[in-house]
Write a protein that binds this DNA or RNA. Sequence first.
DNA 1: TATAGAGTTAACCATAAAGTTAACGGTATT
DNA 2: AATACCGTTAACTTTATGGTTAACTCTATA
Lengths: 108, 108
Amino acid sequence: MVNSIHATLDRTFSALADPTRRALLARLGEQDGLSVSELARPISMSLPAVMKHLDVLSDAGLITRTKTGRTVSCRLRAAPMEEAMRWLAHYQKFWSGSLDRLATLLEK
Amino acid sequence: MVNSIHATLDRTFSALADPTRRALLARLGEQDGLSVSELARPISMSLPAVMKHLDVLSDAGLITRTKTGRTVSCRLRAAPMEEAMRWLAHYQKFWSGSLDRLATLLEK
DNA sequence: TATAGAGTTAACCATAAAGTTAACGGTATT
DNA sequence: AATACCGTTAACTTTATGGTTAACTCTATA
């Protein structure tokens, strides 16, 4: 098994560990299908730098990119986050109050 | 505000992005208060390397260390995970089924 | 008091990450 | 056909990460 759960969590958490990348995901969450330059515009950073962040997100499976003509539109793929959340959920009992614990029970 | 929510999430996700560190947290989840060398024993890595991982976890607020005599016992502090989980929860609607959505509602 | 044990620090190395600028390749537009 | 636009690639720099070994401190014990 080449892509173990560990490697997947590594890539997911690592991708989420950068504020620029979280901001990119947040924008796609509000408005999906934005182009590379639309995503880059509000970021005070060179385009190649933003590209690298998109590459990281793509490698982590958190976005997909499809080219039409000369523009590339990016779409959110939140699925890998689920695994990350499940991992975190194991620790919920160490911090959470009763409502959160109820929520955890309901997920089973 | 020196420690913005962004910096906190950076440190939390970044700390969780390493399998050795996740394994350390998992062990403390099963059995809290383990010493540094007890934590290091099953890991095929030098003690200083493990120490560095503990430093990262400590900086992220995910563990605390208290020295008594010559041994240092480590305790899990899951609180920072809550913020990470809340961030992820915003994206739950992009992947989850009805039960998970219900769980999200209950957290409010 | 000598020795062993638990933890830490320092110095170093290799690789990866995060950014830059400059040049390039297709696709539209005029 | 020339030009502008969107995205990409390449080459480079700086800093962070993850590991090593060696030396050290402090505490406990024989």
